[in-house]
């Protein structure tokens, strides 16, 4: 009985991961080798495909664009969400309605706002700029970041801020000295979630940019499909260059990332 279960787990791993292995091997082949023997190992392991991609396409620019968009949108959403979550630890009039307003967006499928987002970004003058994309990502992810951070702040004992109040700390001081340092784990969780979603988003990155200089990696992957129509191994190499950063970071921080991705769900 036990070996059937283990076999099943190995089989599932194989089905999930074989495509990636196949892609890596194929990226070292020539086009002719690939068509002649899709499964065979390349005759000699050559980096020509990778060199060709790196010289013909500004892969580093795409990569940096993705980094900038993810970091800026994450910082922006974190700033707005921590400020709002902090004030929700106090009681004031209509607090639950304000919470509902800020968190309710979770249930909205935001790709229904294609046209409005396109024009909002155009009107405020950030069309075809990295900041425009970051702004939209921060807006889209705000409800979930508020939810994650607010839930975390709720677990901090209120006695701590009461003690700070008695010692004479004002609202700002309590925030910067007590609540913010203590909610670090919650903020980290939210930022992992924000980074991963921002890094992987395609539609708005595609819709809100036009020129090659503002392409993120995901938009670039989309163009690889059409540009390399005749030379698949090169397309594979481009693709691997695009996914390696995610895999490396995941390999280093897998536990934290798994925790961050499921944080919105567990509460």
């Amino acid at each position: 009985m036990r070996w059937i279960k283990e076999l099943f787990l190995y089989l599932v791993s194989f089905i999930m991961l074989a495509p990636f292995v196949w892609l890596i091997i194929a990226s070292f082949k020539t086009n002719r080798e690939l068509f002649a023997e899709p499964f065979g190992l390349p005759e000699n392991w050559m980096f020509d495909n990778y060199i060709a991609v790196m010289t013909r396409h500004p892969v580093t620019t795409y990569f940096l664009n993705s980094v900038i968009v993810s970091v800026v949108s994450t910082l922006l959403a974190l700033l707005l969400a921590t400020l709002a979550s902090y004030i929700f630890t106090y009681t004031f009039r209509w607090r639950s309605y304000w919470q509902l307003l800020l968190v309710g967006g979770i249930l909205v499928p935001t790709n229904a706002f294609m046209v409005p987002y396109y024009f909002i970004v155009k009107w405020i003058g950030f069309y075809d700029s990295l900041f425009g994309i970051a702004l939209v990502y921060a807006g889209i992810s705000l409800p979930l970041s508020v939810l994650i951070i607010k839930n975390y702040m709720n677990t901090i004992p209120p006695e701590l801020s009461e003690a700070a109040f008695i010692d004479g700390a004002g609202v700002h001081r309590t925030f910067t000295r007590i609540i913010l340092p203590l909610s670090c784990p919650g903020v980290v969780t939210a930022s992992i979630f924000l980074m991963v979603t921002a890094w992987n988003e395609l539609m708005y990155a595609n819709l809100l940019t036009q020129s090659e200089g503002t392409r993120t990696l995901q938009v670039a992957i989309r163009f690889f499909l059409t540009t390399f129509q005749a030379n698949y191994p090169q397309a594979f190499a481009a693709m691997i260059l695009a996914i390696v950063p995610s895999i490396v970071i995941y390999a280093l921080l897998s536990e934290k990332i798994i925790g961050g991705l499921t944080a919105g769900a567990v509460k």
């Binding site: 999930m16 395609l202 992957i221 996914i243 897998s254």
Partner: peptide, 10 residues
């Protein structure tokens, strides 16, 4: 979980 970290585009 690895495939969930790689973008749906990829």
């Amino acid at each position: 979980v690895l495939p969930n970290v790689i973008s749906t585009t990829a």
